[in-house]
């Protein structure tokens, strides 16, 4: 309502000015400019109020959809590493029951430790994304890449170091087949899976276990390809 009054005053001052004399601008210039400034200020305030209400309404309308989408993505992201952690844990218990002091038991333990670290790195990346301020539109794809979801063709699934956060481990790749080798932290999931497979082979464990690990690997590859295509 303030704006309407303001505009009315403005129009009235115009009408008055046109009706009275020719050198209106000298007499009323300051007044008109002041009215016009006030009008502009009031309209900007209206726009700002609308913007603020719009932001809240837009957020409310989209939060659940965003949550659902993120939930599914997070669940898919953790599937392979979670399954490998469960596998390595079962193998660790099995090895300890068979022969607690064996080199195989030590190797399985260090594999499990690396898998746990791998999982922690993914979780940490997700937490970082949550704590970071909302990026502008152009930064969104970069954000996804930091989560290890985005893959560029050079870093993509054609190679063994499947996800971006794991690129620091490619140098340790050649040592994967060595059962007793103590692996440094930072292997890719692909490397950890192969390490686990080599342990299964060297311990002469049932063939089905290899299929189980290959299944995890296959699903993980499919996820990598799919997320890459999305971006």
């Amino acid at each position: 309502m303030v704006a309407i009054e303001c505009l009315c005053v403005l129009i009235m001052s115009w009408v008055k000015a046109l009706g009275s004399s020719e050198d209106v601008f000298d007499e009323n210039a300051d007044d008109i400019s002041l009215q016009s400034k006030e009008w502009k200020y009031n309209m900007e305030k209206r726009a700002k109020d609308g913007f603020r209400d719009g932001i809240n309404a837009g957020k409310e309308a989209s939060l659940q959809a965003g949550f659902n989408q993120g939930y599914r993505a997070g669940a898919l992201r953790m599937k392979a590493v979670g399954q490998l952690k469960g596998t390595a844990s079962a193998l660790q218990i099995w090895c300890q029951l068979q022969d607690p002091g064996s080199p195989a038991a030590a190797s399985v333990s260090s594999l499990l430790q690396c898998v746990v670290q791998h999982e922690e790195r993914i979780e940490a990346a997700m937490k970082r994304a949550q704590e970071r301020p909302i990026p502008s539109v152009g930064d969104v794809s970069e954000d996804l890449a930091n989560l290890g979801v985005g893959l560029t063709p050079e870093q993509g699934c054609g190679r063994t170091d499947c996800c971006k956060e794991d690129t620091d481990c490619s140098s340790s790749h050649s040592s994967c087949s060595t059962l007793l080798h103590s692996h440094p932290a930072g292997q890719s999931l692909e490397e950890l899976l192969r390490w686990c497979m080599s342990i299964v082979v060297e311990l002469g464990l049932p063939e089905g276990l290899l299929h189980h690990l290959q299944q995890i690997r296959k699903e993980f590859f499919r996820l990598c390809v799919r997320t890459f295509m999305k971006i």
Binding site: G54, N56, G58, K59, Q69, G70, G74, R77, P135
Partner: peptide, 20 residues
């Protein structure tokens, strides 16, 4: 429009941690 975008990102990041 801006709120929708922010809500999607905030919701996504939050949901991702829960789903994970």
């Amino acid at each position: 429009e801006e709120g929708t975008r922010r809500g999607m990102i905030e919701g996504h990041n939050h949901g991702m941690i829960h789903g994970a």
